[in-house]
Simulated scan of single mutants.
Amino acid sequence: MKRIAAILTSMVLVFSLAACGSQQAGTAAGSEAASAAQTSEAASTAQTKTEEQLLAEENDILGANDELWEKVFASMDKNVTQTTLSNNYGDFLMSAVDNAKDQFTEEEYASLKADADKIREIENQIAALPQEDAASQSAAENGSTFPQFEGKDLDGNSVDSSLFANNAFTVVNFWFSGCKPCVDEMDDLDALNQRIKEQGGE
């Protein structure tokens, strides 16, 4: 959005200069065409990005200021509601930054707000992406099937959704190492795991 705003500002400036003479008007027309092509190309590039690429951009934004974001995450209330989860993640981060603003200098606070704003824009792009096949999405929403996935475990071994094939039920907790409340609850989750293993779960 900032790039588009900059291009539009440049176009306004070019148009105002174009009034000074016909030669400048020709230059302005060329600049306008170039700017329009750049805007079109940027829009086309944005449309071709996958959700995975956009999420990687979010991670890069958070990673650039990881020490500041760790402070934000450490101060967060981990008790989130379904409404919170369905909201734009950028808005969620903005609220968390506002709640922890007394821990940061003005520059740090401004930087965190700018990061949250970028993430809000990326989340809007993700929301505009075409949805998956309606049937599989509906099945996942109803909890009738666990989504297929592939990844690496903490030791670097390849894993996929077959990990859960022999479980009567599976509890999945989403967390990351920079979230202090997430790390703090690991002992409780381990104790829960020991109890539910007796019932065929994990």
Rank of each mutant, 00 (worst) to 15 (best):
128 A>W: 11
128 A>C: 04
128 A>V: 04
129 L>F: 13
129 L>V: 05
130 P>C: 07
130 P>R: 12
131 Q>E: 15
131 Q>P: 04
132 E>I: 12
132 E>A: 12
134 A>P: 08
134 A>Q: 08
134 A>E: 12
134 A>W: 02
135 A>Q: 14
135 A>M: 14
135 A>Y: 15
136 S>T: 10
136 S>I: 12
137 Q>R: 13
137 Q>T: 11
138 S>W: 15
138 S>Y: 15
139 A>W: 10
139 A>Q: 10
140 A>E: 15
140 A>G: 03
141 E>C: 13
142 N>H: 14
142 N>R: 14
143 G>W: 13
143 G>E: 11
143 G>F: 09
144 S>C: 12
144 S>I: 13
144 S>T: 11
144 S>D: 10
145 T>Y: 13
145 T>N: 13
146 F>W: 06
146 F>L: 07
146 F>G: 00
146 F>D: 07
146 F>M: 02
146 F>T: 02
147 P>Y: 02
147 P>D: 03
147 P>C: 08
148 Q>S: 09
148 Q>K: 12
148 Q>N: 12
148 Q>R: 09
148 Q>F: 03
149 F>C: 01
149 F>Q: 00
150 E>K: 00
150 E>A: 11
150 E>I: 00
150 E>G: 04
151 G>R: 01
151 G>W: 00
152 K>E: 02
152 K>L: 03
152 K>S: 10
152 K>R: 09
153 D>C: 00
153 D>R: 01
153 D>I: 00
154 L>V: 05
155 D>K: 14
155 D>S: 10
155 D>R: 06
157 N>M: 02
157 N>Q: 03
158 S>F: 10
159 V>A: 00
159 V>P: 02
160 D>N: 04
161 S>N: 07
161 S>D: 15
161 S>Q: 11
162 S>R: 06
162 S>G: 04
162 S>C: 01
163 L>I: 06
163 L>D: 10
163 L>N: 05
163 L>R: 06
164 F>I: 00
164 F>T: 01
165 A>T: 06
165 A>W: 05
165 A>E: 06
165 A>C: 02
166 N>H: 14
166 N>G: 13
167 N>H: 05
167 N>D: 05
167 N>Q: 05
167 N>S: 06
168 A>L: 11
168 A>W: 14
168 A>I: 04
168 A>V: 09
168 A>K: 14
169 F>A: 07
169 F>C: 10
170 T>A: 09
170 T>Y: 04
170 T>Q: 04
171 V>A: 10
172 V>F: 02
172 V>A: 11
172 V>T: 01
173 N>V: 05
173 N>T: 12
